[in-house]
């Protein structure tokens, strides 16, 4: 016992120091939580960028992700250009001294844990797989930003618009076709956009759940009435060759209507309403 005593001495001391630091950190965190809404919010995810831009008080949001400036996927391009961008790197974000960072569930776990170790509060919002989950997401961001009233108003508007838009289901069948023959089946936001606009999703008929690939042969055999392609990116890729493969062009040529799955399909925000509206119009026209 006596021999071990000199060893335990410093180690308990270190332990005490750690617990003291932890206590201080906890107190700080609690203080921040009590002190009211965060004043410096940084968003590092395209979808939280959009919800934050819709809900934040003037000056509250200090930076959005660089992806918000990409016209291929960002629905709020003009608004996003009013904010400085970040590239979602830990060091860069920390330098902005945020009191809240908004991230997605699939944001690099290294970045998230690094920021948390540095004492930054990071909120991770889940990927939205259904229209029903959109209000929850809006309310969650509203709560985090201390903008509950605005969030409730936005949700009410969204739900009213969605009810008004919902088209009766018809026998028109649509296929989503992205690069590398990627498509979306049941339990995905794209599937719900399709069904809300009154289309049946052929990928769901094929038994696909969530996102995944469907061989072009199988997609052709399903004979969709409408092929909705992904937005092509600049530059060339073999992955996107499939979007204008002669077999897919032949499917598209059967009907006058065609549509593009663009930025409005990406995030669970009220922007999906515009995608539904445009699709429903095709549906009535075709």
């Amino acid at each position: 016992m006596k021999l071990t005593a000199p060893l335990t001495g410093p180690s308990t001391l270190a332990l005490r120091r750690v617990s003291k630091a932890l206590g201080a950190a906890l107190a700080l965190w609690a203080g921040a939580a009590l002190a009211g809404p965060p004043e410096r919010v940084v968003s590092i995810n395209l979808c939280t960028d959009q919800l934050a831009m819709m809900l934040a008080a003037p000056g509250q949001l200090i930076s959005v992700s660089h992806i918000s400036h990409d016209p291929n996927v960002s629905v709020m391009l003009e608004q996003a250009q009013n904010y400085p961008v970040n590239y979602g790197q830990g060091e860069e974000v920390f330098q902005l001294s945020p009191d809240l960072v908004l991230a997605g569930t699939f944001t690099s776990s290294y970045t998230v844990s690094l920021l948390r170790r540095l004492g930054v509060e990071v909120a991770q919002l889940p990927i939205v797989n259904s229209l029903d989950a959109i209000p929850d997401n809006i309310l969650e961001v509203g709560r985090l930003l201390g903008r509950e009233v605005e969030a409730i108003a936005l949700v009410a508007q969204f739900e009213a618009d969605l009810t008004a838009l919902r088209a009766d289901s018809s026998d028109m069948r649509a296929a989503l076709h992205y690069a590398n023959n990627y498509t979306s089946g049941e339990r995905s936001l794209a599937h719900e956009i399709l069904t809300a606009a009154g289309f049946a999703n052929v990928a769901a008929e094929a038994g696909l759940v969530g996102g995944g690939t469907l061989a072009m042969e199988r997609l052709v055999m399903l004979m969709p009435d409408l092929v909705i392609s992904g937005q092509p990116y600049p530059g060339a890729s073999r992955s996107e060759d499939v979007l204008h493969h002669p077999a897919m062009d032949a499917l598209r040529a059967r009907h006058a209507a065609h549509a593009l799955a663009d930025a409005e399909w990406v995030c669970g925000t009220p922007a999906v309403l515009r995608a539904i509206a445009r699709l429903a119009m095709l549906h009535e026209g075709g």
Binding site: G235, A236, S237, E240, D241, P246, A247
Partner: peptide, 23 residues
Amino acid sequence: SPNPFAASEIVFWMMGSLQDRSM
């Protein structure tokens, strides 16, 4: 390349494939 898919196609150019080719 500005195309996000291009970099993942290094494997195709080094290993080769005939999937989804056309006339």
